[in-house]
Design a protein around this nucleic acid. Structure first.
Length: 260
DNA sequence: ATGACTGATGGAATCAGA
């Protein structure tokens, strides 16, 4: 079972690139973020024609998340991260796929920090930590996949000294991320490649991709019940090198999982 | 450190991203 996460930065602007990637890689599950489209403008027919069923939570202009499943429609479990009924941003959707709970998330950026956006990020992370503990306690095989907007360690940043005051790398953000992982989650890409410099995002500015001035912020965290099934992980950096790319690259894992 | 790029909205200039 192959699961990928891909911040596509505009579902409709990125549709040709998305379809090409789906055709090439045929992931069993694809978690998408930053749809940037209202619910009714999601290109459901094009996704179906590519062989995928989909559930999604759209929003005008910003945010938006989707889960695609090859050959079937994902069984929807949750839309929206629990814990704040006043939070209307489309950043969390959860489905059951072949016995695995797949949570697709788009964690808030949080800049500028400090400030209200950073406060929102940290509060959102506390809600995610609560949901993470519920999933761990249930014992269900689960993956938290998405754009976490956090670089866990220095090795995950091109120039860590330049990011110390940024919301993606501030101590508060990293501490909350590590507290989530400490519940028992496995950072699958890092687990498979402990010492390798791996990035999932490169700024559009200043030829960042050409200089490999990147950061690793897209993650797939595996529950203790699923981590022993991990067989491979990586980033499709070739997708970032194409014409009209997202600023993120698809990040993937391979699981030895037969379904439940 | 900043914002040189990009997408969405709306039909120009602004917001947001990370």
């Amino acid at each position: 079972m192959r699961i990928a996460t891909f911040n596509i930065n505009g579902m409709n602007a990125r549709l040709p690139a998305l379809l090409q990637w789906l055709e090439e890689e045929q992931p069993d599950v694809a978690c998408l973020q930053e749809l940037k489209t209202p619910h009714e403008k999601f290109p459901e027919l094009a996704i179906e024609a590519a062989g995928y069923g989909a559930i999604w939570h759209g929003q005008k202009s910003w945010n938006g998340v989707a889960i695609l499943q090859r050959g079937a429609k994902p069984q929807e479990l949750k839309v929206g991260l629990p814990g704040d009924e006043e939070d209307l941003q489309s950043r969390y959707i959860e489905a059951l796929v072949d016995g695995v709970v797949v949570a697709c998330l788009y964690l808030p950026n949080g800049n500028p920090a400090p400030g209200p956006k950073f406060d929102y990020k940290l509060k959102w992370m506390e809600r995610l930590i609560i949901r993470g503990q519920e999933l761990i306690d249930s014992g269900v095989p689960a993956v938290l996949a998405g754009d976490f907007n956090v670089m866990p360690h220095d090795i995950d940043v091109y120039k860590p000294e330049r990011w110390l005051t940024d919301a993606l790398f501030r101590p508060e953000s990293r501490e909350a991320f590590h507290r989530l992982v400490a519940q028992g989650w496995t950072d699958s890409v890092r687990a498979m490649h402990p010492d390798e410099v791996i990035y999932t995002f490169w700024d559009y500015f200043r030829n960042a991709f050409g200089r490999n001035a990147g950061i690793r912020i897209d993650h797939l965290l595996l529950s203790p019940s699923l981590a022993p099934s991990l067989r491979g992980a990586g980033v499709h950096t070739n997708v970032r090198a194409r014409e009209k790319p997202s600023d993120h690259a698809p990040t993937w894992i391979e699981l030895d999982w037969k379904g439940a």
